[in-house]
Design a protein around this nucleic acid. Structure first.
Lengths: 148, 148
DNA sequence: TCAACTTAAGTTGTGCACGATCTAAGTGGA
DNA sequence: TCCACTTAGATCGTGCACAACTTAAGTTGA
């Protein structure tokens, strides 16, 4: 078998580079987020809340591309840990508003120390960050357009 | 708060682009792998076996950067589905050799139709694939060097 | 030789992801 | 009005990921 004609070589698979990179970055976050009592997806939810304030579960799902099956139990854990509060909206009883508690809002200050460490560990040049983010964003929207 | 000084904006986080891209690509694979009766991590294990033949669990773990806690049950499911066979090595009873069954080996032919579809759906230019894969590979090794 | 150590693998528990299913609340048209 | 439909969210089951722990086999040095 001629390797140059083999489309199933692991090292050539972009999908595997992506999968491995994503897990390695999550692993990089883990010890720092442990100190904050957060998992990586929980951290992402808080990023949205710190940025946009109280949001319905649906908006969190849109922002992070996660469904209720993932978010409902995750938010329940965040609530159990005292970082958010969930309340049914009065004007639409179907909707649940997720709000930061004082403790959840205060955690933002401690989280500010995280991104610089991540950036350093990634070891890319300044302009490479932009190139990579742009390629990933285009890849994702192309794939999602194809799936839809 | 001035957005340009906010290091916690979701859309600026490379880590989120990575996380979202990885999940979207896995979702792209899902319907095609469903037809083969595989999950995405199972597909990756088979890529290694198709390429290298019978391998100890340890080597699979090294190739895919997965630990025994992930691989042991995954391999048990692949074996239950008749795609691989696990046998203790005679020369070192600690090691378990994972071999393809005839059925597992035959699945390769059907898997050959998958990569072209994935490539099309990603919608990147020819040279962008290489750039992206290279950036991701460097990112991963830099992050892993930092973690170690 | 045999106790200390290392290595390969498995097990358990927690927390994502996601498909499938369910419920309850809101909406719209004949 | 009221029935079909849609929407927001929760729940359940399966399969990763990964940390922590356990077991059994192999290795090594005093």
């Amino acid at each position: 078998m001629d390797d140059t004609d083999n489309p199933l070589l692991l090292k050539d698979q972009l999908c595997f580079s992506l999968y491995a990179a994503s897990r390695s970055v999550t692993a990089l976050y883990r010890p720092m987020l442990d100190e904050l009592g957060l998992t990586y997806p929980q951290y992402l939810v808080l990023l949205v809340l710190w940025e946009h304030g109280t949001s319905p579960v649906k908006d969190l799902g849109n922002a992070l591309q996660l469904d209720y099956g993932t978010l409902s139990p995750l938010l329940k854990r965040l609530e159990a840990n005292g970082l958010v509060r969930r309340t049914r909206r009065a004007d639409d009883e179907r909707s649940v508003a997720v709000a930061l508690t004082d403790e959840g809002a205060a955690l933002r200050d401690r989280a500010l120390s995280v991104p610089p460490v991540i950036g350093t560990a990634m070891g890319l040049k300044e302009e490479e960050f932009g190139v990579l983010r742009d390629l990933l964003t285009r890849l994702t929207s192309s794939v999602q357009a194809y799936t839809a």
